[in-house]
């Protein structure tokens, strides 16, 4: 059965990074994979920057024609239809940030509704170290807004709490505590917890309730920039 992952979330929560990781993992398992850039908000930090990398891994990348070319107005490419019409094993949608970014999904409402039951996973990527996702109330508010704009129910949350290069063991732990409360209040399950191997292993060994961890997902970082190394020297 075709599996469709839709990654939404607060601006800067790590959606593009996770989209690449979801797609790469599927491709490594030998799945026919399509990765779609549906970000209509930000002109920077686009999947299109990783065109060569995705091509190497035999992933089909669908990206707005003008992404990364310095054009300020983005448009949805017609090829998005291929996600629904073609016979993929795995399809990953990387969506723009916040409710405003989720709006792009509304255009494909009927296509999503026509998917086989169980095929669709709409995932809210959460990093509680982002200022607008720092509390239970803020996360619930953004989640409700995104759900309304996307016209899709959120299947689950991803705890992707990090501080980029400065991430320590307390990031996932604090994220776990807050996202657990969001889950308890809203009934939306935690489906994944993601992080770099060493930090995620350490978090997993701490004996937290697995119901609020979901599937652990080791990630590699592709979107990081040189300035992460400059931090140390400044």
């Amino acid at each position: 059965m075709k599996k469709v992952y839709v990654l939404i979330g607060n601006y800067g929560s790590g959606k593009t990074e996770l989209a690449l990781n979801f797609a790469f993992r599927a491709a490594e398992e030998g799945k026919r994979t399509e990765l779609l850039d549906l970000d209509m908000v930000n002109t920077y930090f686009r999947l299109a920057e990783h065109g060569k990398l995705t091509e190497m891994k035999e992933i089909r990348l669908v990206s707005p024609n003008f992404a990364c070319s310095g054009i300020e107005t983005l448009s949805l490419p017609a090829e998005v239809a291929s996600a629904f019409d073609m016979d993929w094993d795995t399809v990953v949608f990387d969506v723009g940030g916040d409710a405003v970014g989720s709006t792009a999904l509304g255009r494909y409402h009927q296509d999503f509704m026509d998917l086989e039951p169980g095929a669709l996973e709409v995932l809210n990527v959460i990093n509680i170290r982002r200022p607008l996702s720092g509390t239970v109330e803020k996360i619930i508010r953004i989640q409700e807004e995104m759900q309304a704009h996307a016209r899709l129910p959120i299947s689950g949350m991803i705890n992707n709490t990090n501080l980029a290069e400065a991430t320590g063991p307390e990031e996932l732990r604090d994220g776990y505590e807050i996202i657990r409360e969001v889950s308890e209040r809203t009934g939306v399950p935690v489906l994944y917890t993601s992080g770099k191997k060493q930090l995620l292993d350490r978090f997993l060994s701490e004996g937290h309730d697995p119901r609020y961890i979901g599937t652990p997902m080791y990630i590699d970082t592709y979107m990081a920039r040189d300035w992460n190394s400059w931090i140390k020297s400044l």
Binding site: G12, N127, R129, R130, N162, L163, A166
Partner: peptide, 10 residues
């Protein structure tokens, strides 16, 4: 105070 991950503009 705890660190937050912020975009320059914000």
């Amino acid at each position: 105070m705890a660190l937050t991950l912020m975009k320059g503009s914000e």
